[in-house]
Simulated scan of single mutants.
Amino acid sequence: MQFGVFTVGDVTQDPTTGTTPSEAERIQATLAIARKAEEVGLDVFATGEHHNPPFVPSSPTTLLGHIAAQTERIILSTSTTLITTNDPVKIAEDFSVLQHVSGGRADIMLGRGNMGPVYPWFGQDIRQAVPLTVENYGLLRRLWREEVVDWEGEFRTPLRGFTLAPRPLDGVPPFVWHGSIRTPDIAELAAYYGDGFFANHIFWPASHTKRMVQLYRRRFAHHGHGSAEQAIVGLGGHVFMRRNSQDAVEEFRPYFDNAPVYGHGPSLEEFSSRTPLTVGSPAQVIEKTLGFREYVGDYQRQLFLVDHAGLPLKTVLEQLDLLGEEVLPVLREEFAAGRPADVPAAPTHAALLRARRPEPTPVSGATDKRRE
């Protein structure tokens, strides 16, 4: 199972100091968080894509390409790449390049985005969000898998004799996650193609996430990709930790109360009781995270949000230390315990390459020699 962090890249005032980082400071902080994530043993770093203030990650592959040069092991992903407003040809090119510069440490999470004004900025109509998703993703798959593409659709100009350059690393396209909070059509799209389904999970109660994941698993099996238990599932989560739970609550409360995405609404305690948000000790984070398996089954990727709402970089890096030192070792051990043998491991470039290349059949002499 893979564990990691994702960022939405918000530029938010620290409510305890009144200080707002500059865009340059926020971008540099994101780079520091990615480097620290690898240092503490996390498996994945993912960045969102936004094209409006107060967010800065408008060009995720530029950011991830720079991080690739500063890291050696961590998988680089998005959370999400906008399949609706980005041209599929450009997505295919950018992520093929990212595969090459990172040595295969790249995958992609596709989503529709939740900012309505973005659609007209890129010449699209939000009312066509789901049809755009379906059409654009169908083209994206072909671009990564076919040497020469002839294609015609409804929302972009046709392609005639188009060849993607560069081709995917080792001829293996990046693994695709489809991210969604509330849209069953996206769960169906992921299931139809046998791709991964990522339930963002951080705003909704367990009952909603359970229904979405169950739908995806049923349709994954229906489309013939394996059993429902073999479907590839990822979850989001949001944590804030101190060794003493009361210290965590006291410190995080002003950030929660003023957060761009859930401030000025339910109380911290109410929101924590209804959603995966965990504010407390490492032991509490472990307990709640392990509980996710009770309603989604064995899954492959867990990403945590740790840098939202104006938290200073120093505090975020302390969160990563706690994750690496006290939370991850226990989660790895507990999630591995009792995991059925037929549940797939989290996808990696190396695993996808092995699955594509069957083991060579040994010649009889070699077989005989091994038997002696």
Score class of each variant (00 low, 15 high):
Ala309Ser: 14
Gly237Phe: 09
Gly171Val: 01
Leu303Asn: 12
Leu143Thr: 08
Phe175Glu: 02
Ala165Val: 13
Gln302Trp: 12
Ser207Ala: 15
Ile91Thr: 02
Ala34Gly: 11
Leu64Val: 08
Ala129Asn: 14
Gln128Ala: 14
Phe55Tyr: 12
Gln246Cys: 07
Thr47Val: 15
Met109Arg: 09
Leu352Cys: 12
Lys369Val: 14
Thr348Gln: 07
Leu159His: 05
His308Ser: 15
Phe292Tyr: 14
Glu38Gly: 08
Gly297Phe: 05
Tyr119Gly: 04
Tyr119Ile: 05
Val279Ile: 11
Asp10Pro: 09
Gly9Ile: 00
Trp144Arg: 02
Asp247Ile: 09
Gly310Asp: 13
Val172Pro: 04
Pro53Gln: 03
His222Gly: 09
Pro57Leu: 05
Asp185Met: 14
Val8Ser: 12
Ser22Thr: 14
Pro205Lys: 00
Gln99Ile: 03
Gly138Lys: 09
Ile181His: 07
Ala32Phe: 05
His223Gln: 11
His51Leu: 08
His223Ala: 11
His201Leu: 07
Pro276Val: 07
Val11Cys: 04
Pro276Lys: 07
Val134Asp: 15
Pro54Glu: 06
Pro329Asp: 06
Thr85Phe: 06
Glu287Asp: 13
Val330Trp: 12
Gly138Val: 04
Gly153Met: 06
Ala309Phe: 08
Val40Pro: 04
Phe203His: 06
Pro15Met: 06
Thr16Asp: 13
Ala283Phe: 05
Ala34Trp: 00
Leu323Phe: 03
Phe256Arg: 02
Phe155Pro: 08
Ser364Met: 15
Asp10Val: 04
Arg160Ile: 01
Ala206Tyr: 12
Leu305Gln: 11
Leu64Cys: 07
Gln300Asp: 02
Leu215Thr: 09
Phe256Ala: 02
Val176Arg: 03
Phe292Val: 09
Asn200Ser: 12
Ala346Gly: 03
Glu372Phe: 14
Val101Pro: 04
His208Leu: 14
Thr85Lys: 06
Leu140Asn: 06
Ala24Arg: 11
Ser22Gln: 13
Asp257Tyr: 12
Ala69Ile: 04
Gly161Ala: 01
Leu317Cys: 00
Gln284Glu: 15
Asn114Thr: 15
Asp14Lys: 03
Asp43Arg: 08
Glu229Lys: 11
Thr80Ala: 15
Pro21Lys: 04
Thr209Phe: 01
Pro282Ala: 07
Ile67Pro: 13
Tyr119Gln: 01
Tyr299Pro: 06
Pro88Met: 00
His50Pro: 02
Gln302Asn: 10
Lys210Ser: 14
